[in-house]
Design a protein around this nucleic acid. Structure first.
Ligand code: MN
Ligand code: MN
Ligand code: ZN
Ligand code: ZN
Lengths: 137, 137
DNA sequence: TCTAATATTAGAATAATTCTAAACTTAGAA
DNA sequence: TTCTAAGTTTAGAATTATTCTAATATTAGA
């Protein structure tokens, strides 16, 4: 469901976005853009520690901000948590939040039909939809 | 546009919600439920200071949480800020966020037509819609 | 009036994130 | 291949929003 990039491709994406591809940025980039799903800074740090990568907390935050500024990820806040979540899905899409687990799922725009009728003076730039509920299976 | 309640009515609303109507709660209740529009804890504190009311920061936070627990207000987080915003509009409604000013406007559900088509296993409990943009006039 | 329950408060604590300034790495010029 | 300037990483301090602690004050009702 998620695109996979080789280390070389990640490096290329960083370079092309004007970001110097350091070891830390490539590693975090690979995790955030390919492997993880809506991770927080804390998630990235935990993953780095598990892999014995000794990347500092400051670098995790710096790199996440760099990825956002470079347009490679987008930050979101959800109602259940005060941590910022990083989204590598650059398509326009919405979110389903499983209130039980706190897990966030992407919803393709095709699955939602939305029509906004508003007075002309409201100039719409973007739309965030968060559906809260539970997944039963 | 916003319902006004007298001090007595606020007191009654608190009591009926099982909340002891202390002086501080009545004052904050009146501000949050009638006068203010999507205020933050900081806004409430600033208003209290302006009115020379000496209500402590802890009481502001306690009271806002009490109002939420009593079902008299709802907390929201918006993308532009990490402060919780308290909403006294208990109807189902959406939000327009003016990116210039940070001001939040209510959008009646009638102004938006939304139809969600999702696999049966997603049990929807609620829906948050935030429209970001600018108000030009 | 007394008392137990509840609310308020100042200040300490916590949690997420940013800042600071020193050490390290890198890219590219010489 | 140096050398150097620009850019990056880092530990730890700072900042911000919010919660906790535990002492004091208020309240409702017997
Ligand atoms: Mn996570
Ligand atoms: Mn505000
Ligand atoms: Zn997403
Ligand atoms: Zn609202």
């Amino acid at each position: 469901m998620k695109k996979t990039y080789s280390t070389q491709e990640i490096e290329k994406r960083l370079s092309e976005a004007g970001v110097q591809p350091t070891l830390q940025r490539i590693a975090i980039g690979q995790y955030v853009l390919c492997d993880a799903d809506h991770p927080t800074a804390e998630d990235v740090l935990a993953w780095a520690e598990k892999k014995l990568m000794k990347i500092s907390q400051a670098t995790v935050y710096n790199t996440l901000n760099t990825l956002v500024e470079a347009g490679l990820a987008r930050p979101f806040r959800f109602p259940h948590s005060d941590k910022v979540v990083y989204d590598s899905n650059l398509m326009d899409h919405f979110h389903f939040l499983d209130e039980k687990s706190g897990q966030v799922y992407d919803i393709a725009m095709e699955d939602i039909e939305i029509k906004v009728e508003m007075p002309k003076k409201y100039k719409i730039k973007s739309l965030d939809v968060v559906i809260k509920g539970e997944i039963k299976n």
